[in-house]
């Protein structure tokens, strides 16, 4: 059932990670991901992994939800691992078969890169699980604000507004789709049988009303926004102000410390 699919990844909660300032969360997650690529040895990589694990545990989101993300990237993970496993010439040869050579170096690189991808997924999941899509859009808008100095301020606001509206209407349209789907099923619409062409044609009774209602909604919304004198981002204030609290400072400092730790480990180990 469509209703059962939760859109996006947001997992409701009130943990420290959830309450963290969305702007900082976005930037720090990006920073940590960059540092995943700067990590030059196992020690620094594992430090970042420990950081991810700590955040995951603090977020109050069940660990199995994080692990579920692995399933989607498993092919990529395996592919990377295999390529690296067999394409690294150095190190002791463990196994040789035809043109494939399996070396300690290859093994080391395969594990290293897989862990890197894994942690990358974990960090992005921490961000999306603990931040509502709307907060995330707001954060992106705020982070991109400096673009106004090169005349792109309006474009940033418009894009952010479009994203917010789109996000806002995804559940509405899903609900609408489900209603129309049920209504046509109640008239005996058969969506499951027949070949591809027949199935596409069978979708028309759902797509046409859905499109009509989406256009109608768009007009209604545009009118409602104009009635309330919406005229773009210029001079617009926000209902929900983001405040950078002391907790946010502490969190930021901790993450920066972690990054410094990565550099130190890179250098000394």
């Amino acid at each position: 059932m469509i209703r059962d699919v939760t859109f996006g990844q947001f997992f409701p909660g009130h943990s420290v990670v959830h309450r963290f300032d969305p702007r900082a969360k976005l930037l720090l997650c990006l920073l940590l991901m960059i540092f995943l690529f700067l990590a030059g040895n196992f020690w620094s990589l594992l430090l970042l992994g420990a950081g991810a694990l700590t955040l995951m545990l603090c977020s109050g989101v069940p660990l199995r939800l994080y692990l579920r993300n692995i399933k989607t990237i498993l092919p990529l993970l395996l592919f990377t691992a295999l390529i690296n496993l067999f394409s690294s010439p150095g190190g002791t040869v463990l196994l040789q078969w035809w043109i494939f050579r399996f070396t300690t170096d290859g093994l080391r690189r395969a594990v290293f890169l897989s862990l890197r991808i894994l942690f990358l997924i974990f960090y992005s999941a921490i961000l999306t699980y603990s931040t509502t899509p709307n907060d995330l859009t707001d954060a992106i808008e705020r982070v991109l604000r400096p673009l106004r100095f090169i005349g792109l301020g309006g474009a940033v606001h418009t894009m952010a507004m479009m994203m917010t509206i789109a996000l806002r209407f995804i559940p509405t349209l899903m609900e609408e789709t489900e209603k129309i789907l049920n209504a046509q099923k109640a008239r005996g619409a058969d969506l499951e049988s027949g070949n591809l062409l027949r199935r596409i044609r069978a979708m028309m009774p759902i797509l046409i009303p859905l499109l009509i209602s989406a256009v109608r909604r768009a007009y209604d919304l545009a009118e409602a926004m104009e009635c309330r004198c919406y005229h773009g981002g210029e001079g617009r204030t926000r209902m929900k102000q983001m405040h950078f609290s002391r907790g946010d400072f502490v969190g930021t400092a901790l993450v920066l410390l972690l990054c410094a730790g990565v550099l130190v480990l890179n250098f000394f180990c």
């Binding site: 209603k179 209504a183 109640a186 008239r187 028309m204 009303p209 009509i212 209602s213």
Partner: peptide, 16 residues
């Protein structure tokens, strides 16, 4: 579904 006919709320939105 042919024996139990269900008319949804605002059924005019299902016209196509």
């Amino acid at each position: 579904r042919f024996r139990v006919g269900l008319v949804f709320q605002y059924p005019e939105y299902q016209l196509f």
